[in-house]
């Protein structure tokens, strides 16, 4: 069997090559962690070393002790609150709306939905300044609500959930309605459980988008205490300029929560990516 031998060799080469790539891929992360464990004095005195000779967790202590200019613990809490609430509210609001567009008869259904789709073409950059003014006129700047509310008007998720609902049998609705259930009951008791897979996807995407957003939180919340992890990180470079160890400790703190979430929800995330790219599952 000459072919099998060739097959094993080519597989071995391929796997080795990809393993090297994956190793290199992780080097920046490892270097970040290693630097965060070095004392700042050591870095400033000795410069570059591959592996730190002295290991310390001081940098993490410094980070959490600075509650004035870089309240990282507060940023983490803010990010968690904003991302979770964004995800929950987006899921609920989009699911309600998508259900109506997909399953209910009312005047203007098609027209309204076409209008929603049309607005997806609007480049978001035009809305930036007006949304800033709107939030300010509501006196919501420097609050966490400012980081959540503007994104609840999005259309993409409604579109995704509506597409998904076409795969949920309509007989469910009819049976429930004949049994005398109202639309509210039908939605929460029967349709919502059916939508869980797509709602997971929408929720996760919204969570990560909120967590990673930079420009909007940078503009609307400028007090140190009201920043998110991502927008806060953009100002720490100046604060810990000569303390690269501490700077990397902050960076580690920003990376760990999402990486941990990633470990647990990888499956859904990967399914969601193929789903949102418009392919069928």
């Amino acid at each position: 069997m000459k072919k099998t031998k060739k097959y094993y060799i080519s597989q071995a080469i391929l796997i080795t090559g990809m393993a090297i790539l994956c190793f290199l891929w992780l080097v920046p992360l490892v270097y970040m962690v290693l630097t965060s464990l070095r004392p700042n004095e050591d870095i400033n005195l000795n410069g570059f070393v591959l592996f730190p000779k002295v290991i310390t967790f001081d940098n993490y202590v410094i980070v959490f002790r600075n509650t004035q200019s870089a309240p990282v613990a507060k940023w983490l809490i803010n990010s968690v609150i904003v991302s979770l609430l964004s995800a929950l509210l987006t899921v609920l609001i989009s699911a309600l709306s998508a259900f109506a567009y997909a399953r209910m008869k009312f005047k203007g259904n098609k027209l309204l939905f076409s209008f929603l789709l049309l607005t997806m073409m609007i480049p978001s950059v035009i809305s930036l300044i007006p949304n800033f003014l709107t939030i300010k006129s509501f006196h919501l700047n420097e609050t966490l609500a400012a980081l959540i509310l503007p994104f609840l008007g999005g259309v993409t998720n409604i579109f995704l959930i509506r597409q998904f609902l076409y795969g949920v049998p309509k007989e469910l609705d009819e049976a429930a309605l004949i049994d005398g259930a109202g639309y509210g009951r039908l939605f929460f008791r029967i349709i919502l459980p059916q939508m869980v897979p797509i709602l997971m996807v929408v929720g996760l995407n919204t969570f990560l988008a909120a967590w990673n957003d930079l420009l909007w939180p940078l503009i609307i919340n400028q007090d140190a205490a009201n920043r998110t992890m991502t927008s806060g990180l953009s100002v720490v470079q100046g604060i810990f300029d000569n303390q690269k160890g501490t700077l990397m400790a902050v960076t580690v703190i920003s990376a760990v929560p999402v990486l941990v979430v990633y470990l647990f929800v990888q499956k859904y995330l990967i399914r969601g990516i193929s789903l949102t790219s418009g392919m069928k599952e």
Binding site: T230, V250, V258
Partner: peptide
Amino acid sequence: ILSVSTVVL
């Protein structure tokens, strides 16, 4: 999944 700030730092 890392934020742009994390990556740039």
